[in-house]
Design a protein around this nucleic acid. Structure first.
Lengths: 262, 262
DNA sequence: TTGCTCCTCACGTCACGTGAGGTGGC
DNA sequence: TTGCTCCTCACGTCACGTGAGGTGGC
């Protein structure tokens, strides 16, 4: 009737998700009345959509219909997000399987100290995409509202801890000429650095390939340094609707051009 | 460089998915050369797409590029299938959250023995959808090729074991007047039965709601019998491209109309 | 008495993550 | 000597599934 297996029903009883109407004391047999069917079906559908059991419980315990609907809608939005992401990875992988890829070109560059308006926070890697969207929108809106002249591309600094411990300091910034402070936006000086630079073309979902190529190049050259990774957003989805047009510069810290390899 | 965590790298070493280039004997330190980067990226992408680790290993061990591509393509096709299914469940759930649903109407009916051309096999519930597609296409093709007159709708019989043990006997059949035997298609007599019947409207993904309503009705009436569930496919995706047009009859075995409830 | 279906309890699975406690090299 | 990073080992997590051994009611 509900397509739930016996083992699953027992499991849901054990974790208190779907309690039998009556349990025989002597035999331990579980009895379920038919008024539990709608709940059972809802549970099954939410589980099909990989909603965690704790969240399903919240849905079932929701006091009113609107609270319930908002819990489910939130999950559906998350689902639709991951659906889109999965589709990107799939199409990206199809490209990877294709005949050939353009080689990744690496360039060395030294950049001076740069004055920027930055949002700097400690972020978990799982929340990075969301954080990035919010922060970039906030920076751009503030620059527009204040009529601040922007001197270059939107950029970001990503501390090594972010990749190693999955939590670390991130800065997103716009280069400026005049100080700009407001709310969590503050004016800072991004220190100059010697960098190995590669440009990634296309969606951010495929950036791992360019990261891999650049990281390999740096490692094989033996000139790597620890320090934050820098990204410059030359063309973002705010600038173009064509995925293939997107351009992201990845900058890896290296020893200076005059450094002796000791 | 690869976005794989340290723990994940250790795990992949342990299960033999990605072996370090060199392991220091004294300290146990793992060292990875940059030529492992492409493999690491491929692993990460396949795992993002939830390909099981054993399958990823098969991909990495594939001898030639074409074998590798076919393994990946197969997984991508499965992925795209589940993507579509997920989208159906999502949109279906949005409907469920909507204002109201038409009540499910239940009718009692007695059907006589029926001569049919049937494909009968033991099937696992996970393979049922695929099996159904193959079998229905085969039955229809055979009827067309032989010019056999078809007397009614495509139908199916589903043994209770299928739902309880997730593996059981399934028959898919077309009613006929003359015997029709070929390959796995054979002529059989579907025994008559007393049934409680409900019509499901819309995609098969949402049929659980109608199953729940019909099963509840039968249980509450106290006239249920064990026996195979019967489905009649009044309008299938072979007949219409509009999901809302789809019609499936679900028939639940019950005691006869003249039976005394003892 | 024989099947049948239900039960409990303990352990397995999958792909890692967590956390305690320890070690080598700068 | 102090941090730092790596290590091992054992156990935890999530949502069930498996399988052994037992029981009640027809």
């Amino acid at each position: 009737m509900t397509q739930l297996s016996i083992k699953t029903l027992r499991h849901y009883h054990e974790v208190g998700l779907l309690e039998p109407t009556h349990v025989d004391e002597a035999s331990g047999y579980r009895f379920y009345a038919t008024d539990l069917v709608p709940s059972a079906l809802l549970i099954r559908r939410l589980r099909t959509l990989e909603m965690p059991v704790v969240d399903v419980r919240s849905v079932l315990n929701a006091q009113d219909g609107s609270e319930r609907n908002s819990l489910i809608s939130k999950h559906l939005e998350r689902m639709e997000g991951t659906l889109r992401q999965t589709q990107t990875v799939v199409s990206d992988l199809r490209v990877m399987l294709g005949p050939s890829h353009a080689p990744v070109l690496v360039e060395r560059r030294s950049v001076p100290d740069t004055l920027v308006a930055a949002i700097t926070e400690n972020v978990a890697i799982g929340e990075l995409v969301y954080w990035w969207q919010e922060a970039s929108a906030e920076l751009r809106a503030l620059a527009r509202q204040t009529g601040t002249r922007v001197n270059g591309f939107l950029g970001g600094l990503y501390a090594p801890e972010l990749y190693i411990e999955e939590f670390g300091e991130v800065s997103l910034f716009l280069p400026i000429s005049e100080p700009l402070n407001s709310g969590r936006v503050s004016t800072v000086l991004v220190p100059g650095a010697h960098l190995a630079v590669a440009v990634h073309r296309g969606s951010y979902a495929g950036i791992d390939r360019t990261y891999g190529a650049l990281g390999s190049w740096v490692a094989d050259s033996g000139i790597g340094r620890t320090g934050p990774i820098r990204e410059n957003y030359l063309l973002t989805s705010a600038d173009t609707s064509e995925e293939q047009q997107l351009r992201t510069e990845i900058c890896w810290p290296v020893t200076g051009p005059d450094a002796t390899n000791h």
